[in-house]
Simulated assay, not measured.
Amino acid sequence: MESEPEPQDDDEHIAEPHTPSAGDVLLAIEELWPESLAEEWDAVGMVVGRPDKTVQKILFAVDPTLDVIEEAVAWGAHMLVTHHPLLLKAVNSVASTSFKGRAVHRLIESQCALVTVHTNGDSAVGGVSDVLADAMRLQDVEPLAQAPNGLPEEGIGRVGVLAKALTLGEFAESVFKLLPAVAGGMRVAGDKDAIVNRVAVCGGAGDSLFDEVQKSEADVFVTADLRHHPASEAREAAMGGRPYLIDVSHFGSEWLWLTPAAAALRNVLLDQGFDVETRVSTVNTDPWDFVLTPS
């Protein structure tokens, strides 16, 4: 009499996750942050690296500075994903006599790929401005400037409403607490006792979006790198009223995106049967060291 076959453990049929190539990671990045969403002037995608090389560790950072690259190398990262491009402006040499040349040489010599997710990471669902809007608990969120090649919910910036109206002072304080500490702090233009409810946000430099902010009927616009003339003209046009302005650190406004971005990439790769380790850089790449203010 033949013996009954032993029951199979379901776990034996589950394939063990395996290590992806850089090419596999690039496909996952494209799924999350399609290059078609990048602005025409931008430079995104792989900057340094071989698509066939395996990737086990991925470090996320805002800027590809030498300190960040050294952090990636010390950790043994096989890929560095940064928001800002290393080679946005054209160069005719990557000799190690320049910062950019040293960065390229260090990455290649350490076999660490470099990938840029910039304005495609701004426009995509779950991108930089979405993360800012989520952190501020905005509701009924929609793009400030819709992406020409994207879905209705994709585009630069976001606008939405607060769960509860606040004074400008209270709202500014809540934004300040969300962001990492930087030397420049945060600047606010407007009556601190004015009530705000509808909020426009744009991670990074957003003073090219004042027309869109005005059309959105936002009470306040939160962005970075507000230059004197655009900000002055916007305040003059508003005659001291709405939209009020909150000028935050460029680095800080985009730093919030790193943790959810790293988690999202790891989850997509896990769904595809790949196992990687992701980490967010601990280097503060805000360029300012200290600030003087009136006593």
Rank of each mutant, 00 (worst) to 15 (best):
V222W: 13
T54E: 14
L80M: 11
A224N: 08
C112K: 05
H84L: 06
D207E: 08
E12F: 13
L270M: 11
A95N: 14
S208H: 12
W257N: 07
R227F: 10
G45K: 01
K215A: 15
L86C: 06
I246Q: 08
V55W: 07
P152R: 02
E70W: 01
S249R: 03
L138V: 01
A133S: 14
K89E: 13
E212K: 15
H105Q: 11
T65G: 10
Q139K: 15
M239H: 14
A264R: 12
T278A: 02
V117T: 09
A172M: 05
V73K: 13
L245E: 10
G273M: 02
V201L: 09
E71D: 09
P243T: 05
T119C: 07
R242W: 02
S253M: 05
F171V: 03
L132V: 00
S216T: 02
G252Q: 13
Q111F: 06
A200K: 05
L26S: 13
G206D: 09
A124H: 00
F99M: 14
M186F: 02
D271I: 00
T97N: 07
L114N: 03
L88I: 12
T19K: 13
N120F: 00
P294R: 09
D207M: 05
K89G: 09
A15H: 09
G126R: 00
V276M: 12
P85N: 08
A172R: 06
I108P: 10
A28I: 01
P294V: 03
S281D: 04
D247N: 15
D271H: 12
V104Q: 12
A183N: 08
H229K: 01
V55D: 12
G204R: 04
V81F: 00
D219V: 04
D207K: 01
A218D: 07
L88Q: 10
D11F: 14
S295E: 13
R198W: 04
H83A: 00
L32W: 00
A74V: 00
D191F: 10
N284Q: 06
P287M: 07
R106C: 07
G49D: 07
V115C: 14
G169M: 02
G101S: 06
C202G: 04
